[in-house]
């Protein structure tokens, strides 16, 4: 049933953050049921057997929810199938004999650490700057004590699907993190629980985003096209109007 696929993987090798990298091409035999990461595991096992340095790549959950499996496959973050992370990408999307080009995410705010692994801690600092809500300590509140309109809950849930993978930044020709930041702002901003920081949050998170050196959104839409969780550009509009409202409300950060 599942025939072997003979592939060539042209992958970015870079020793460390300071070194300058280059592409290396390796042959690998995969089968169509493997995930892309499993194919890389096979390739790495071969490299280890030859006493060569395995390719460094990030992975954790391998079920499409943690967002660590960052790499650009044939020019697309997380590869060719839309709405899918690299770990959920199956080799059946490729053909026997293909040469597959694998590169790290490219953005100045995501420096390459080694091979395919990049430093995405800028996202953590954006979250720390304002991705939280205030709640009273003490007893756990009643489950449904705060009524939430269904439409708003839906918008919030959709934004909350963002796994912080950084594919939006990787896809953006401007290296902008506005899709990510806006998803986080919209996730909390649509809910009554997020009301307390509704002016502080957009100002603090956008300021941190700018400070990290991400680019400015030109509304190109590459992020939306590549996001594995299909986060929408409407979130960026939400962020823009929340930010403008917050700035002109006069509330200090």
């Amino acid at each position: 049933m599942s025939a072997d696929m003979n592939l060539k993987i042209k992958v970015w090798r870079q020793k460390n953050n300071k070194a300058s990298g280059s592409f290396e091409t390796y042959p690998v035999v995969a089968n169509e049921h493997m995930s892309f990461l499993e194919m890389l595991d096979v390739l790495n096992e071969g490299l280890i057997n030859q006493k060569k340095e395995p390719i460094a790549f990030e992975h954790d959950c391998r079920e499409g929810i943690c967002g660590t499996c960052s790499m650009v496959i044939n020019g697309q973050p997380h590869g060719p199938s839309s709405g899918t992370t690299t770990c959920q990408l199956h080799m059946r999307h490729f053909k026997d004999g293909d040469i597959i080009v694998v590169e790290p995410y490219r953005a100045s705010a995501f420096p390459v650490l080694k091979d395919l692994a990049v430093d995405r801690s800028a996202f953590d600092r954006i979250i720390q700057a304002g991705g939280y809500i205030s709640v009273n300590a003490g007893q756990a509140p009643d489950g449904n004590a705060i009524p939430i309109e269904k439409g708003r809950a839906g918008q919030s849930f959709e934004a909350a699907a963002c796994i912080g993978c950084g594919a939006c930044v990787a896809a953006c020709p401007n290296g902008s993190a506005m899709l990510f930041t806006s998803a986080k702002i919209a996730h909390l901003g649509h809910l009554p629980q997020g009301e307390v920081e509704s002016n502080k949050r957009p100002q603090a998170m956008v300021a941190q985003m700018d400070k990290e050196g991400f680019g400015m959104c030109s509304n190109i839409g590459a992020c939306e096209a590549e996001c594995p969780k299909e986060i929408k550009l409407e979130n960026i509009a939400f962020m823009n109007r929340s930010y403008l409202k917050a700035v002109f409300s006069g509330e200090e950060v």
Binding site: F23, V72, N74, G75, Q76, V101, E103, R106, A107, S108, A109, C172, P173, N174, G175, S176, G213, F214, G215, M216, S218, N219, I220, G221, A222, A225, E226
Partner: peptide, 26 residues
């Protein structure tokens, strides 16, 4: 803005695949 964004992108990809975006927007 355009100059800043060019720096924020940094290194370009060896392979680019951008058939889902318009030429004008970029």
């Amino acid at each position: 803005i355009a100059l800043y964004n060019k720096g924020a992108k940094g290194q370009k990809y060896a392979v680019s695949n951008s058939n889902k975006t318009t030429w004008a927007s970029k």
